[in-house]
Amino acid sequence: MKRETLWSCAALVAGLIFLSPVLYTIWMSFLTVDSYYSGDPVLTLANYRAAFGQYDFLRYLLNSLLVSGVVTLGGLALAVMAAFAFARFDFPGGNFLFAAVVATLMIPGHITLIPNYLTLANLGLLDTYAGLILPAISNGFAAFFLRQYIRGIPRALDEAAYMDGARPLQVLWRVIVPIARPAILSMGLYIFITEWNNYIWPLVAINDSDLYTLQIGLAKLYRENPGEDVINWPLVMAASTITILPILLGFLAVERHLVRGITMGAVK
């Protein structure tokens, strides 16, 4: 028992050392610029006030939340429906179409960069939320993962519902989705994080600073501080913290949710 405690402390210290760049970032974000350069710490919230106000990070934060949220919901909806079809129906061309979905996992995303830019330009969707969202909606990995999960759910449950006169979409919504909830939640988390951290596509598709996501806003803020000794590092670190923190907090919240979903299923 004592040894265990000792090891826990050692692991904690090792973890903190590993994460020290991130922890120091958060600490720095509360320092005044002068105190950062003089080395005599004076704490302040001014960096956050400046980031959210003058530098528009509140707007970038809301843009990121909106885009990642819609991509996650839309992506899950498409993936769940397709996964249900691939897991439960035998239909001509089914294997081929499933292979076409899985193959997208191996396709390097950057070959689509220029053509997708052109497609959106033709549709007049550059510099719009739709332009940020639409190319990110389809998610072959989520469809593949959920199909595997749904295959593990006993078919007898579907059949009982069909006997009661349910239609396929009702079976999906009332039988499959509740049982597959842990898998759907973890896929949702994965899609949200991926989209939140997406950089190259918004960089290409967005010029209007009103539509910047956090990633683009942060990169520009960092870059537009030219010359090393004039960089307002505490402000940049406040902006970095704003970019990192929602994912960390969300991760903790959803992780608890996930554990509850799994344990509830085990108790029933």
Partner: peptide, 8 residues
């Protein structure tokens, strides 16, 4: 976490 933030 965000690659951009880590890079910064």
């Amino acid at each position: 976490t965000s690659t951009v933030a880590i890079a910064v």
